[in-house]
Nucleic acid binder design. Structure first.
Length: 562
RNA sequence: GCACCCGUAGCUCAGCUGGAUAGAGCGUUGGCUUGCGGAGCCAAAGGUCGUAGGUUCAAAUCCUGCCGGGUGUACCA
């Protein structure tokens, strides 16, 4: 129980005692001039009690003053009837002292599976993958901070039409099924070479009927290669080699941005289970046959119909997703499963989950689908995957690195990543984000590098002093110190809210406000050399620790020096 | 057509478990500077919270209509 919850309970007890009424008290953080906490409970009770809210407020305030005198130094009623509480310095100091180490227990000892990124082998990583990777990593960190046993997994299509398209163009390039010719391609070229093949294959599929037929055929042959475990035929050689290139490329990218997956679920590994499950449930009437395909009739549930097995007998993405969810359940028996994807598949996912709900409802109950928007270039430039002029993940990182170098004259991978990650994370999840290469890496204002700098600067102050930081309780706080302590003390509440709503951007907002709080304090108050040096060092230490804790949840590094 | 999401300052966004003068960054204007890291601080200008209703003591926040934008809508993922 946080101290805020303790106070809420105490106020509820007072209401019970004074009015004999059960009320739900929610404390908020009002403007600092009003106090440390506020509640509008008196306003809410005015109607049922038929009384003036200020009158109710005053009655409660009087009782609270005597009941909470140990931790609350002032209770006031203001405005239309808000009850404002001002903590004693000692109570506030205790809160600030505990803040950076706070761990919510929301997911304590629970198994949580976080699936995100989900790139397809044989294709390029685009800006959207960078976005989902950054967001997914932060959410996984959030679950961990809340006590969860987190498993990061990744799902991707190593079979499917896109593979047929790329393979078709690869065969064109190699002049047939000649795997030995792949050796001529330099390792650092692998990813780009395959991305270019995909673009060519996609164009051919759309424009050339003969090519389209060949691609469909290749798609089937790839499924066959998987089904038979074929590693010997020339085509299989090409397939497995290029598939491995893709995974190497993914791993390098994830290592660069600092996220690590425990497991890849290639579609080929879950397609069988999906197919089997859907066929089984077809017998049970969950799915039905229509025009040679197996579908789920979503209209019955206010959704739409989707094909799970196509008329060629091949499982579509829908069936693979069924297989994936079943497989994750078999592997982890999770308490919670969170899937993070783009918002273009929200309706799709509803259909898939609704179908699974028919035969495995508890599994769906534990699953949450979180979605994000697209990463768009400022200026509204339209990108097309088909033409290959998409915004790639590396393009974003390169743009950030270039801007950072231009601004600081230095090259820093840490700073660049902080800039990109923070610019993605500070926005509420769900909507599109406008990515402006210049603006997003700006090192001034509300940015990742700003917070890294704020942290490094605080550490520098601590290094500068030869004294040990004191416990905050050693002395009453002056106004500026109190203001900073108050902001630090909010951290547990912010973390709780971020965990409860799975909204990491709240942490960003808070950390920025915290840094502003510190800068205001620091502007006019000396630390090293001041008579209050030890106390202030204690404050700076809590501040730096809180920044560090928050940034770590976001997946942003906190260098001691920059 | 239907479904889902979105519409807050010039730009990019917070705020949306309903509450006290709607906040921040960038940009603009003006001030602070021999500073423990100024990547900062203070201040000013800038808003019919898309629009019309409804619910409520109280609506940017909840409900409905409309306008505008995005996405999805049977064998792609």
């Amino acid at each position: 129980m946080t101290d805020m919850e303790y106070l809420e309970t105490a106020i509820e007890a007072v209401i019970q005692k004074v009015f004999g009424h059960e009320a739900l008290v929610i404390l908020t953080r009002p403007d600092e001039k009003f106090g440390d906490y506020a509640t509008n409970v008196a306003l809410q009770l005015a109607k049922p009690f038929g009384k003036n809210p200020r009158e109710i407020g005053e009655t409660l305030a009087a009782e609270l003053r005597t009941q909470l005198s140990e931790t609350v130094q002032e209770v006031s009623v203001a405005g239309p009837g808000f009850i404002n509480l001002r903590l004693t310095d000692a109570a506030l100091a205790a809160l600030a002292t505990a803040a950076p180490g706070y761990k919510p227990s929301t997911y304590k000892d629970q198994v949580v599976v976080a699936e995100y990124s989900d790139p397809n082998p044989f294709k390029v990583l685009h800006a959207g993958h960078l976005y989902t990777s950054v967001v997914g990593d932060a959410l996984a960190n959030l679950f961990m901070a809340a006590g969860g046993e987190v498993h990061r997994v990744n799902f991707g299509g190593d079979v499917g039409l896109h593979v047929g398209k790329t393979m078709w163009a690869i065969l064109q390039e190699l002049g047939g099924e000649h795997p030995e010719k792949l050796d001529a391609i330099a390792p650092e070229q692998h990813a780009e070479w395959m991305a270019a093949r995909y673009v060519i294959g996609t164009a051919a599929y759309e424009d050339d009927e003969a090519a389209k037929a060949e691609i469909v055929e290749l798609n089937k042959r790839v499924y066959q290669i998987q089904a038979e475990g074929d590693h010997d035929t020339p085509l299989a050689h090409i397939y497995w080699t290029c598939r491995a290139w893709s995974y190497d490329y993914f791993n390098q990218f994830y290592a660069r941005i600092g996220t690590k997956f425990e497991k890849y679920y290639p579609e080929s590994e879950v397609a069988g289970l999906g197919l089997q499950t859907v066929r089984e449930q077809l017998k049970n009437g969950v799915y039905s046959e229509s025009a040679g395909a197996v579908v789920f009739e979503g209209e019955k549930y206010g959704l739409h119909t989707r094909v799970f097995i196509n008329s060629h007998g091949i499982p579509t993405y829908e069936a693979k997703d069924v297989g994936l969810i079943m497989q994750k359940w078999q592997d982890y028996h999770f308490d919670a499963s969170v899937v993070i994807t783009g918002n273009d598949i929200v309706e799709y996912m509803k259909v898939v989950l609704k179908s699974i709900e028919q035969f495995h409802p508890e599994l769906v109950k534990k699953t949450v689908h979180l979605t994000h928007g697209q990463v768009k270039l400022a200026g509204g430039v339209k990108m097309s995957s088909r033409k290959g002029n998409i915004l790639r993940a590396v393009d974003v990182l390169d743009a950030a690195a270039a801007a950072n170098k231009e601004l600081t004259g230095q090259e820093s991978e840490q700073t660049m990543l902080a800039a990109v990650k923070y610019s993605f994370l500070k926005q509420r999840l769900g909507d599109d984000i406008i990515y402006d290469p210049k603006e997003s890496v700006s090192l001034e204002g509300n940015s990742g590098p700003y917070l890294q700098y704020a942290h490094a600067r605080a550490r520098s102050v601590l290094r500068k002093s030869s004294l040990q930081p004191a416990a905050l309780t050693e002395s009453p706080l002056d106004a500026a110190e109190r203001s900073l302590a108050r902001k630090i003390s909010e951290y547990p509440e912010v973390l709780d809210r971020a965990v409860a709503g799975l909204i990491p951007h709240h942490i960003c907002t808070y950390l920025y406000e915290l840094a502003q709080s510190f800068n205001r304090f620091y502007e006019h108050n000396r630390v090293v050399g001041d008579a209050r040096e030890r106390l202030r060092l204690g404050l700076v230490a809590r501040y730096a620790d809180t920044l560090k804790a928050g940034l770590e949840v976001l997946g942003i590094t906190t260098p001691e020096r920059m």
